[in-house]
């Protein structure tokens, strides 16, 4: 994902801002990392360039 995706995504639970932590980046493309809600603290993984912003209760089942 590109960092400017943060302009349009938010925490699926409370719609607050997400904070980006980058683990791996290639040519401005964030390959892995974490998005953390600045309000509730829920953490959402970025894997293979795709942020998983499913609410936690759907993340396990799918």
């Amino acid at each position: 994902m590109k960092e400017d995706l943060l302009d349009i995504v938010c925490c699926p639970l409370d719609k607050h801002d997400l904070e980006l932590d980058i683990d791996e980046e290639e040519d401005d493309d964030i390959v892995s990392g974490t998005l953390t809600c600045t309000e509730c603290g829920e953490a959402y993984p970025i894997e293979d360039g795709i942020p998983n912003l499913l609410p936690p209760d759907m993340r396990e089942a799918a």
Binding site: L5, I8, V9, C10, P12, K15, D48, I50, L53, A62
Partner: peptide
Amino acid sequence: NPHACRQARERGVPAVRADLVAPFR
């Protein structure tokens, strides 16, 4: 569906795994 997200990204489209519009501002 994570497989769908992967296929979209392979086409060069930014992909987000999401429940409908839940994680959008």
